[in-house]
Design a protein around this nucleic acid. Structure first.
Lengths: 197, 197
DNA sequence: GTCTATATTACGATAGAC
DNA sequence: GTCTATCGTAATATAGAC
């Protein structure tokens, strides 16, 4: 179909193809043959660019994790009242997730069968813990409703946020689209979470 | 360790073991060898009970789908104002999910690589559509807040509900546990969704 | 950088004994 | 009902030519 001449692959450009296939078929369900067909080069050519399948996974989940941990270093996540920091981190997580949806999708589906996968799971738990601590602080400030368990609420909140990967697909030139999603998530979450005025 | 004498396997008891392993390693990441080790019998013995790996998957996702579609046939899902039916279905979905968590987990992770998987995805979409229609009806009644997109809200609501499979593990003799989770989910969801008084 | 050819291992499934 | 042994295929990865 698209007989467009492309440049030679780099690990980076190959990753784009690989992550798409990983998300379509699942990581374990994807063979090097599948990747080779999708990239339009032979299996052995792929090994010229990367050490193997697992390196592609490592690069992908690293990118997702960098995006997520980056949020915690932003001023909005470090300053101000805890409830405001929670809201900031929630909104930014939605935004990062949408910006990096193929990479975050892969991260969220990792099972723990290989060393790389276990490392990814560990780092993800670390992120969840940092967010959970923020929620606890907001609860201690009395800014979260007292009739729900904080641990449970945290899980449900981020369960809702993470579920975006199941259906969200980026459209070029549609920042308004993303803004609306982020706004709706925050609104749904916090109109239920925040202490009533 | 536990050298307890067990009865011969049936397809049903074998399924319990298989679904646990599928959820730990992922369906594609699980080999017949893995199942054989976990069940404590040889690979070929497994084939005496079931036709193969895919039959185990089919039995598992069928059980999950039966549970979910069963909800829609209950009186609470068919009678009354739409908003009340939505709330009923939401609560019951949480309950079924917790009661059948290993089976629903497997269903929610299906990718579509085989015929069985594509059939599961199709039936799941059917369920989502039925629920989505309920939400639309509630919106038409004016019982859902008008400032959020209904389609988006439906996805987020069931994204939150489905995220239970990521962490919920059943404890014997703890119905109170389940009641609290169901109550919290409904409260968080609907205090944000329902029109304010 | 990309290819064809191939080594080696793992997988799903079957044959046939007990 | 369970086993050992094995078949045929598909997987990851490498060798070596161009």
């Amino acid at each position: 179909m698209t007989a467009v001449k492309r440049d030679t692959y780099t690990p980076e450009t190959l990753l784009t193809v690989a992550v798409r296939v990983f998300n379509e078929r699942g990581y374990d369900g994807t063979s090097m043959e599948h990747l080779s067909k999708a990239a339009g080069i032979s299996k052995s050519s792929i090994y010229h660019h990367v050490a193997g399948k697992e390196e592609l996974l490592r690069r992908a989940v690293s990118r997702a994790l960098d995006g997520l941990f980056g949020i915690l270093d932003e001023p909005g996540a470090a300053r101000g009242r805890a409830i405001e920091r929670v809201e900031y981190v929630t909104r930014r997580t939605v935004e990062v997730l949408m910006a990096e949806v193929p990479y975050v999708t892969l991260l969220l589906r990792v099972r723990g069968n290989t060393k790389t996968e276990r490392w990814a799971l560990e780092r993800r738990r670390e992120f969840d813990q940092r967010v959970s601590d923020l929620l606890k602080a907001a609860a201690a400030d009395g800014d979260l409703r007292a009739d729900v368990d904080i641990r449970l609420a945290t899980r449900l909140l981020f369960g809702m946020v993470n579920s975006l990967v199941e259906w969200y697909r980026p459209h070029p030139d549609d920042g308004a689209d993303r803004d609306q999603v982020a706004e709706t998530v925050v609104r749904l979450a916090f109109d239920g979470l925040r202490t009533s005025p």
